[in-house]
Structures are given as structure tokens and as C-alpha cells.
């Protein structure tokens, strides 16, 4: 479904980002896996001589404009365009309003909002050169529901959803589609930080009675990246197993 397409996924070292990288690779894409640490390059990189699909690890710190620029320059030099951008890098702090630190707010917004903004601002210049351009922002099911202790994270994801809708309007005339995925509870390192008690409580609120496998999010990303969703833009798709908040 993505043969020959050039994709960039931020936050690709593990979790949802890694699953998206693997899924796109299995569908024939040339995937730049944006990570902050060179140590995992060897673990990530792949090449399939039959499909010519590749996973190319690349340094991408969404909080560092120079890193973003270098990443885009490399893609520009190698391909002259970008077909798919997945803004996945994100961070999470669970702090109630009166206990929320300024530093937590700064870190969450720097990564989830400003980082995503800066990556897209630079990447859009390469996306405009593509015939199949698609931006996929990873939001959260909390963006419009909120939850206890989620002031910072939920509000940052509301910003992501808002930017998604705005950019969809700004670029629709160029054929550039912009959509978001709002995952619910997903089996990632970020999620595994919660206690057993919290985990049981969370499960009781999910209609399907289980959390998502990261690949279940990746499959929706594949749909939004491919021509299967060619008439969809400005949407946020919840992938939450019937979550009741």
C-alpha cells in the first residue's frame, strides 16, 4: 500500500512510533525512523531487497530546531520530497492541577505541541512536493474528554487536534491531507508506568476489556497514510476499544 513512499515518523524508538515504522515498512515504504539516540540505530535499520522498503534511523529531537532542520535536509537530499509525516513523539506527566509543576508543563508543551509544530512547519515544505502527502498527528482520546491528573497532557493533545483541523484547511487545496489518531490505553512503556490498581480501574472502563496493541494504532496510521483514505482530511479517529470515561 505504501510502496516507494517516503515517510518520517518521530518518536520511533518504541511503542506506537515503532509499530508504525514496522507497519509502513511491511507495506513497502522507505521509512525514516526519528529517534534521539544513535545507540538504537542498528536495532532499527532494515532493508528488504525485494520490495526495496527501508527503515532508515535518523536523529530527530523534536525539541531541537537544528536537529529538525538537519533531518529534513537529509530527506530532501536523498528524495527531494516527503510523502508521509507521522508526528508521534510525545511525553506524559500525570499531575493534578494543584500539584502540576511548571517544569512538567514546559516539557509536555515543548514536545507535544511546540515540537510537533516545528517539525511540521519544516516538513510541510517537502510534503508539498509529494503527490500523496499525508500528515498524521498522534493525539489522545483524552483530548476532548480530559481525565483526572491529565490537565497538561490532555490540553496538549487538544492543541494537537486543533492544529490538525487548521492545517487540513490550510493545505487541502494542495492535496495535502492532515488527520489525527486519538489512541486510548495502549500497551507502551509510557502506559506501563501506572500501578496494578490503576491498570485494573482502567480496564474496567474499556468496553473491549483490554488495552490496545501498538500495531492496532499503526494499522489506522497505515489507513490514513495510504490512498485508502484519499477523501479524508481534518479528522481525528479515536482508537480506544470503546473507552468510557
Amino acid at each position: 500500500m505504501l510502496k516507494g513512499r517516503v515517510a518520517l515518523v518521530s518518536g520511533a524508538s518504541r511503542g506506537i512510533g515503532r509499530a508504525i515504522v514496522e507497519r509502513f515498512y511491511s507495506e513497502g515504504a522507505i521509512v525514516y525512523a526519528g529517534v534521539r539516540n544513535k545507540d538504537i540505530f542498528k536495532e532499527i535499520e532494515r532493508y528488504d531487497s525485494e520490495s526495496e522498503a527501508r527503515i532508515i534511523p535518523i536523529i530527530l529531537d523534536v525539541c531541537d530546531k537544528e536537529s529538525i532542520k538537519q533531518c529534513m535536509m537529509d530527506i530532501k537530499k536523498n528524495h527531494g520530497r516527503l510523502d508521509i509525516l507521522v508526528n508521534n513523539a510525545g511525553t506524559l506527566y500525570v499531575e493534578r492541577l494543584e500539584m502540576a509543576r511548571d517544569s512538567s508543563m514546559q516539557q509536555i508543551y515543548e514536545t507535544n505541541v511546540f515540537g510537533l509544530f516545528h517539525v511540521t512547519q519544516m516538513a510541510v515544505r517537502l510534503l508539498k512536493k509529494s503527490m500523496f502527502a499525508s500528515i498524521i498527528n498522534i493525539s489522545s482520546v483524552l483530548w476532548d474528554k480530559g481525565d483526572i491528573g491529565q490537565t497538561l497532557y490532555a490540553s496538549s493533545k487538544a492543541a494537537v487536534t486543533s492544529m490538525t483541523k487548521t492545517w487540513a484547511k490550510e493545505y487541502v487545496h494542495m492535496g495535502l491531507r492532515v488527520n489525527a489518531i486519538a489512541p486510548g490505553n495502549t500497551d507502551t512503556d509510557m502506559y506501563r508506568r501506572i500501578s496494578d490498581k490503576e491498570y485494573k480501574e482502567e480496564l474496567s472502563r474499556i468496553g473491549m476489556g483490554r488495552i490496545a496493541d501498538p500495531d492496532e494504532i499503526a494499522k489506522v496510521a497505515l489507513f490514513l497514510a495510504s490512498d485508502m483514505s484519499s477523501y479524508i482530511t481534518g479528522e481525528t479517529i479515536a482508537v480506544d476499544g470503546g473507552l468510557i470515561l
Binding site: 532542520k69 530532501k76 515544505r125
Partner: peptide
């Protein structure tokens, strides 16, 4: 204009 300049001189300009 920016897109043309960037392509012609093989650069990416800061915002």
C-alpha cells in the same frame, strides 16, 4: 518564492 530559492540553492531556510 521560498520553495524556489531553497531548491535552487539546495538549502532549507529558518522560519
Amino acid at each position: 518564492l521560498i520553495a524556489e530559492i531553497e531548491d535552487a540553492f539546495d538549502i532549507m531556510m529558518d522560519t
